[in-house]
């Protein structure tokens, strides 16, 4: 047996430090502090919304080894479900009262999550279950599912872009001297932090979380210990799909429009975030999403022509440093 005591479970803080480091690195390239603050908050808000959408998918990949391109459908349909609830309540959204606004937002968010979750359950049962263990078929089947879902959106909601009303109480901006911070972005940061804190709490402090973390590493061994991992799979898949619905609804209110292809459009960023974070890692996904959000906003301002490829470049740099992502999961 070896001699010295091992350290207690140590947290690897280096990837976490990348976020403030990136923000500080961008500072000299931005002409004024208020602009830097605006861009940073915008980047963090964008990152939080991407995290909400991506967090479920990274767990699904880690736990079930499923390449689910249909996740984009859960985002789009979740957004449309929210919009279907919000539009009839437009007057409540325009009211100058937070409580009245929330009366409209809460059912819209719940609808987005419920529809996203239900759709996820349906996709898992009908499309994905027959192709477990076969990545090529998973890609084909889930891409097909995404295309069918997009066409279904055209049939149900029509082909046009639908404007989404943003609640008055989260419209406008907080101003601190020359610095203006959009209220909706602050809300996105708060919701994103809430989702991350809840996930971290569930994963690290509950038996369910212990099972999920173990299942991500070695599902076969979890079964050999007497746990029915299939039920866990379905639960995580449905929860991940519901989060995609929530993210879709928030993104729709952020962009103030909704269209059928929004999910597919976001999937590129979501996959980059998952790969950067380390497939299956929620913490990695969180850091990756913040990095992607910040890089997109900073490059969009400093060098707009580079904006399109900046996240790919970020992914390449991270993978050169850590080839399995920021927080690699030791899969068996």
């Amino acid at each position: 047996m070896s001699g010295g005591a091992l350290p207690a479970a140590r947290r690897d803080w280096l990837p976490v430090l990348l976020v403030p480091a990136l923000a500080l690195l961008a500072l000299p390239f931005i002409p004024s502090l208020p602009t830097w603050v605006t861009l940073t908050v915008a980047g963090l808000a964008m990152g939080m919304m991407i995290f909400i959408m991506a967090s479920g998918l990274t767990l699904v990949f880690g736990l079930m080894d499923v390449m689910n391109f249909a996740h984009g459908a859960f985002i789009s349909i979740g957004a449309y479900a929210a919009v279907s609830v919000l539009i009839p309540m437009k007057a409540m959204m325009q009211a100058d009262s937070l409580a009245t606004n929330l009366t409209a937002i809460a059912p819209a968010i719940l609808a987005a999550m419920a529809v996203g979750g239900l759709l996820g359950w349906f996709f898992e049962r009908v499309l994905i279950r027959p192709v477990y263990g076969d990545h090529l078929k998973q890609i084909l089947v889930t891409m097909g599912g995404l295309i069918v879902a997009e066409q279904a959106i055209h049939v149900v909601w029509g082909p046009d872009i639908i404007p989404v009303p943003r609640p008055v109480s989260v419209g406008g901006a907080f101003t601190f001297g020359d610095i203006a911070v959009e209220k909706y972005r602050v809300l996105a940061v708060v919701v994103g932090l809430g989702v991350f804190a809840t996930m971290a709490l569930v994963l690290n402090r509950t038996r369910l979380g212990l099972l999920i973390r173990a299942g991500v590493e070695n599902p076969e061994m979890v079964e050999s210990l007497g746990y029915r991992i299939r039920r866990l799979f379905i639960g995580v898949f449905v929860a991940g799909s519901a989060l995609a619905g929530l993210g879709g609804a928030m993104w729709a209110m952020y962009q103030e429009t909704v269209f059928a292809g929004m999910g597919m459009q976001l999937m590129v960023l979501i996959f980059i975030v998952i790969i950067i974070g380390g497939m299956g890692s929620v913490t990695g996904c969180f850091i990756g999403a913040l990095l992607v959000g910040l890089v997109a906003n900073y490059t969009g301002f400093i060098a707009p022509k580079l904006a399109l490829g900046s996240n790919i470049l970020l992914m390449v740099l991270v993978l050169l440093w850590r080839p399995r992502g920021l927080y690699a999961i030791g899969k068996s």
């Binding site: 973390r213 173990a214 590493e217 076969e220 061994m221 210990l225 007497g226 746990y227």
Partner: peptide
């Protein structure tokens, strides 16, 4: 497998099957 395990069989695989991140 979970039902078999619950009948009272413990299994230690060749690769040990420990959860490295736990």
């Amino acid at each position: 497998t979970p039902d078999i395990a619950r009948l009272g069989i413990a299994y230690v695989p060749e690769n040990m099957g420990i959860f490295a991140g736990l």
